[in-house]
Amino acid sequence: MSHNYVELVKETVLEAMEENGLEGVVMDETTNILQDTPLDSLGLAVVLVKLEEKTNKDPFSEGFVTFNTIGELAALYEA
């Protein structure tokens, strides 16, 4: 998996946390976004909007695809 997409997702998750006044946490590919970070589902929804803007890709255009970790989410944009 490309390092770049993982970094992009990490950076975007941090952005969303910061915008909601949440403290940043250390993340890697295996970090489960909803369980291991203080971000809730609304915050994660914002992450998806931001990623779509940054990459011009919408992996959810055909419906919701499940993912849990930073790595799994990055893979969706890389595809």
């Binding site: 589902s41 609304l42 929804a45 998806l48 959810f60 419906g63 919701f64």
Partner: peptide
Amino acid sequence: EKKNPMVGALLA
């Protein structure tokens, strides 16, 4: 309103 796969719609 911004449609969203996670939560239906977000206030944007």
